[in-house]
């Protein structure tokens, strides 16, 4: 009873805040709604005994990714009025697609495994099963290949971001370390006869 109460609370708030992300007029408010949505999703994870995923969601997404989002949005000058141009023009097409998708989703979620009391499929392992350890066990064994590829993807993201933004500017001052190390006394000191 209490469990379903919490489920509906977290689930409902997640949906409401997700709507807020899309509908908010101010981009900053959208980000705030998204953070709130992540907190609720983390709550759902906790209810499924997946405490590791819940905490990771808050630490990484809320703590790092969304904070970065906020910085980016603060730095950009976004003209929301311009973004909303043509909203009515695209509304009919968008509404038809959204409606079709909604019907599909409802149909799909009433079929198969989703219909047999979705909550029943999430087993409770109890406190003797350590969620973090179990994830670690499969992550570094069975899914090792995926883990390694993910590492390479991160490297590519890093290299790509630097390549696209790094530019050597002629007017910027740089440290020339080898010149600094190789400097001799004669270069800097000048004996002046007094």
């Amino acid at each position: 009873m209490l469990e379903s109460l919490f489920f509906y609370m977290f689930g409902g708030l997640a949906i409401v805040s997700a709507m807020g992300v899309v509908l908010a007029r101010n981009t900053m408010h959208s980000v705030m709604f998204l953070i709130f949505c992540f907190f609720n999703a983390a709550g759902l994870f906790l209810m499924l005994d997946a405490e590791f995923l819940g905490i990771i969601l808050i630490l990484i997404y809320v703590g790092a990714v969304m904070v970065l989002f906020m910085f980016v949005i603060m730095m950009l000058e976004i003209n929301t009025a311009k973004l909303r141009e043509g909203f009515l023009q695209y509304l009919p097409t968008g509404a038809v697609i959204a409606l079709a998708l909604l019907i599909e989703f409802v149909g799909a979620s009433r079929a198969g495994v989703f219909s047999q009391g979705a909550k029943a499929t999430a087993e409770h392992f109890g406190r003797e099963v350590n969620n973090t350890m179990e994830i670690g066990k499969v992550l570094y064994t069975k899914y090792l290949l995926g883990f390694e590829i993910a590492a390479i993807i991160l490297l590519v993201a890093l290299v790509g971001a630097i390549v696209l933004t790094l530019r050597t500017r002629k007017d910027a001052k740089y440290q020339n370390i080898s010149a600094q190390v190789n400097v001799r006394k004669e270069d800097r000191l000048r004996k002046v006869r007094m």
Partner: peptide
């Protein structure tokens, strides 16, 4: 699907950067 998706993303991410080189 795991290996597939990770391979796909590795490819796609590299190509995005290459397109904007």
């Amino acid at each position: 699907f795991i290996t597939m998706y990770l391979g796909l993303e590795l490819m796609a991410l590299s190509v995005y950067v290459l397109v904007g080189y």
